[in-house]
Computed example of a mutant assay.
Amino acid sequence: MPAVGLILFSAQQTGALWSDTETLPGATITAGTLDIGVGAGSFTLGSFGQTGLAVGGYSQTPLTVKNTGDVPTRYRLTNVTQSDAALPLTLTVWEVANESACPASGDPTGAATQLYDGNMIGASTELRPALQAGASTVLCLRGTVGTGAGGGLASTTTFTFDASQV
Rank of each mutant, 00 (worst) to 15 (best):
L17A: 14
D35V: 13
S19I: 03
T51S: 11
T92V: 14
W94Q: 05
G49T: 12
A101K: 05
F43C: 03
W94H: 15
A40C: 00
T14K: 11
P88H: 03
R76H: 09
G39Y: 06
L24M: 04
R74G: 07
T78I: 15
P25N: 09
V93N: 09
V65T: 11
L34F: 04
P25Y: 07
T21D: 11
T23C: 01
D20S: 14
C102S: 04
P72L: 07
S105H: 01
L77S: 03
Q82W: 04
S19T: 07
S42G: 06
P25E: 11
Y75M: 14
T21Y: 06
T92D: 14
P62Y: 06
A104F: 06
V96Q: 04
T44C: 00
A40R: 14
S47W: 03
V93G: 10
D20N: 13
G41F: 09
S100I: 06
K66V: 15
Q82E: 13
P25W: 00
Q82L: 12
T61N: 09
S100T: 15
A86T: 15
D84T: 07
T23S: 12
A86E: 08
D70Q: 08
P103K: 02
Q13T: 13
S47P: 04
I36T: 12
P72C: 03
T33R: 13
P103E: 02
R76L: 06
D84Q: 11
V38N: 10
G46E: 04
R74Y: 01
E95G: 05
V93Y: 08
L77E: 03
L87S: 02
A31P: 00
S42K: 05
L34N: 06
G15S: 15
T92E: 14
A54V: 08
T73L: 14
V65C: 02
F43H: 11
